[in-house]
Design a protein around this nucleic acid. Structure first.
Lengths: 342, 342
DNA sequence: TTGAAAGCGCTAACAG
DNA sequence: CTGTTAGCGCTTTCAA
């Protein structure tokens, strides 16, 4: 079945103008500056527009105006066998927030053999988008440096360096950890361990720093374990080691929910009941947390608020040319579930 | 800090032509029909293009050519508190497949008060995209009907009706279920239950039908339970009911991984050991499956292959005007884990 | 093989 | 308040 259509020429201003018996400009005005038309004309013209289903050609309009109403989101590369379960929720929030303002999200990715910076340059040079939304931003992210140098609008989920535009929003991981440790201390724990995977991501450092700050504040005895990568076996081994020592901790804070599987496994192997003999808490609130037995205490990321803040800030830059003076930290939400114990 | 830039005029053909000492047309040819240039000229011109970082303006090019190299993906509305954990993996695969072919994905969504169809019409009329990628397609999906009527290119994750263009790809849920039931039968089970949530999605029907077909083939005694919605409490109750009857099933097949939490809970409440007293299998291979104890036997969706097939088919329609004769069913992958027992 | 001219559909500037 | 003119940057004729 072949459906090759002869590149349909859609309905244009010309058509509408003729049908309404006015000039092309009047049509344009009806859409872009309705106050300039006599109420009666406007009504008549609008009816014709409606009836013909006329929409200004996006490309023509963009060519003229120089604005695309599109935001590029460089999609993080994901392992399809083990995809980031929060990506859908973040995009949901981003699409909702940008759609509200009449912008759409274009998913972009460097072509094979192309660097991140080259991909950005191409999008800028081809004037494909009005700005960039960046996520998983590192402390010294080359993309941020590049966009800053190019003077092109962006907003970052993560944090930028002091000399760079502060158009970012991030989870206040440190504060959330401090709160979490406070809760643990209030429940009488004195020896608390922190278990982290060493990926080098800045947000993981923030979590660790927050943990340490909280522990210091409550005079807790701490122990910090780092395991390479996300290898479950390594985590189980580390946790068993942690739990088999003398003076073992009565609570374990884990840098991310994903690792807790290993912790649960190890605790069982050591004959410890989670929530009874050992309190466990983590971070992220992945969809899995309800599936652990007992359910996991964790910190929920404020993805919706982050997305809204990022889009707001980006549009302020794009439309008003105003770059925020300071970054924005949004609080994580403590979700207390049985793994924390009584 | 105000960074309002005076709407930078990027580098245009004109600039490059002047710099290279040739006409505008030669530049255009160098990019779009290099074979028409003398090798030496081409080289020289390319060097200048490279040096000036020239990229044809996307809008101008689109206006002229009528092609956007953009595919719209109407993003399913997601519950941000409980996001679809597979969305990230699907988008990853879609972005990779389309990027390969030089297309990008635009996330779209009806504006407040706008219907799905109106949103499609707007994108078509404004010539914003070359085609649509649809997911979560219902058996009689209004979007498919609308795009078919408009004669606009699309590809559907799901299945279209017989009279409609068969540009779809889907998981062969029925066959995967038949295989799964075969495996269960081979392990000696004679009484098998099917537990489903009633959402009315066609793929859920496919799964049930596959289950029944498999059971028939192996002469198994079956029992089908349907629970409204995804309410965990309802599932626990139904499962307890199921398990407490006389002649209770020795295996339970669940329509989706998500529901198994309730099944596990109910089984424990009945004093049954999963994998020992009761075999459990489900569908989707959500990231949670490894977190259940014992780990869950399930069917993995071939999202990467689906995405590739959809993009392939869509581009065939867009670029060659050729609509596939038939839909494409891709096999799910049986992932056997301890919940199925010995 | 290269150059000149026209026009894609739209809107901003100006004139009536 | 409405109409005319020009041009955004590109590519597709057509002519040289």
């Amino acid at each position: 079945m072949t459906t090759r259509r002869p590149r349909e020429r859609g309905v244009t201003v010309e058509d509408v103008a003729r049908a309404a018996g006015v000039s092309r400009q009047t049509i344009s005005n009806a859409l872009n500056a309705p106050h300039r038309l006599k109420a009666e004309t406007l009504e008549r013209v609008s009816a014709v527009i409606e009836q013909l289903g006329y929409r200004p050609d996006q490309s023509a309009r963009s060519l003229k105006s120089g604005t695309r109403r599109i935001i590029a989101y460089p999609t993080p590369v994901d392992d399809p066998a083990n995809p980031n379960p929060l990506m859908g929720g973040f995009l949901e929030a981003v699409v909702a927030a940008s759609g509200e303002a009449g912008y759409r999200i274009l998913l972009v990715r460097p072509r094979p053999g192309q660097s991140q910076e080259q991909a950005l340059d191409e999008l800028i040079a081809a004037r494909t988008v009005d700005g960039f939304l960046l996520s998983d931003v590192l402390r010294d992210d080359p993309r941020v440096a590049h966009l800053t140098a190019a003077g092109f609008p962006f907003a970052a989920f993560g944090r930028t360096a002091p000399g760079q535009p502060q158009s970012w929003a991030d989870v206040d991981s440190a504060q959330a950890m401090i709160d979490l440790v406070g809760l643990i201390a209030a429940r009488g724990h004195r020896r608390v361990a922190f278990l982290a995977s060493t990926g080098g991501q800045p947000w993981m450092d923030d979590r660790r720093d927050g943990f340490l700050a909280g522990a210091r504040r409550h005079h807790l005895t701490t122990q910090v374990y780092s395991v390479p990568g996300d290898d479950p076996a390594g985590i189980v081994a580390a946790t068993r080691d942690l739990l088999s020592g003398r003076a073992r901790p009565t609570a374990v804070v884990v840098s991310g929910d994903w690792l807790t599987l290993g912790v649960y496994t190890a605790a069982r192997a050591e004959g410890l009941e989670i929530g009874e003999d050992l309190a466990v808490a983590a971070f992220d609130d992945l969809p899995i947390t309800g599936f652990l037995q007992p359910a996991l205490t964790t910190v929920r990321l404020p993805l919706r608020r982050i997305a809204e803040a990022l889009i707001n800030r980006l549009l302020r830059i794009i439309e008003d040319g105003v770059t925020p003076e300071a970054g924005l930290l949004l609080p994580g939400e403590l979700v207390v579930r049985p793994s924390l114990g009584p």
